[in-house]
Amino acid sequence: MLHPESPVTGQTRMDSAWGSQTGDEDVHAKVTQASVDAGQIFEQEYKPWNGTLNPRWMRNWAILRHHLLGIVFKGHRPWGVVTRIVLLLIFLGSLSSAAMVLLSGVVGDSTLASMWGINRENMYGHVLGFFPRNIIFYPIIAAILVGGMISEDRSNGTSALYFSRPISRVDYTSMKFLSIAIILFFVIDGTLAVYYFAEVLVMGRGWSWILDTFPMFLLAAFSGLLLAITYTSIGLALSSLSKGRFFPGIGLLAVIMGTKTLAAIIEALFDKTILYVISPFDCIAHIAQSLMSIESTYQHPWTWSLASIVCINIGALYILTARVSTLEVTRE
């Protein structure tokens, strides 16, 4: 058994160039003539750095900034052009309710105002209306956002960049989660806020009106938050499962639409709404309906939907953490 510290003995290989065959042969040659060339210099100087490193929250903030600022500014996470355009379009689309209010104010049409003005149903509709928001806008935005979130780090290998630094997997995941949730929140509730304040400004609503309607606004916003969080959880869980860009988005759409469709079919066939508990959208809609005292479209109690949505979120987050904890840092 070789003792690691003791020296080694043995023989080494030999090889030599062709042409020096026997060592005794004669050799021949012929020469002509030609011209010149030139070169370059590079000074390599190592520069040390004696700064201090900031604590954990600073690092996490860097991750969040990287993902959020990248939508607009260069030098951060490069979101694709298509993604940015779709994001912009959907954001503008979500502002349609605010636009209608503006229009009604400008035109002075009272029917327009009563149709589109702020009230409990309309705020609910802004967040949880099925068409077009929850069949097109919000699911698609969520799908696009989660697209490469985690899978890109897998395929680019940049997970090594994160985890070889003092970034824990919890930090990594939460910041990614936050960045998507914030954007979704901005699209859903940000536009809701614009809608609300458009009404206030254009219709010249006074403080008493605000006092009356603000609680509803908050409840609608809360539902929007729930929607943002849930879509993010499911989407990120899917992103952590695959290496591709498209699977998470398509998967998310499939989950959202598929569960709803299935439940709708069951309802049509058997006249039972119970299966809607598997559809994340419907659970949240149900909760919002009961919170905002809107007529329920579901037979079962809203507490079941609440329980379901909590389970869905927990399940998604579990998958997410499990997958992220196995992300590779070094090669295997």
Binding site: M58, R59, A62, H66, G75, H76, N156, L161, I167
Partner: peptide
């Protein structure tokens, strides 16, 4: 490395990730 980022920003980000 993220292929779509400029080298300078990629290196800057890696520094920010350290704090």
């Amino acid at each position: 490395l993220n292929p779509k980022m400029d080298a300078i920003y990629q290196v800057q980000y890696s520094g920010e990730l350290l704090g």
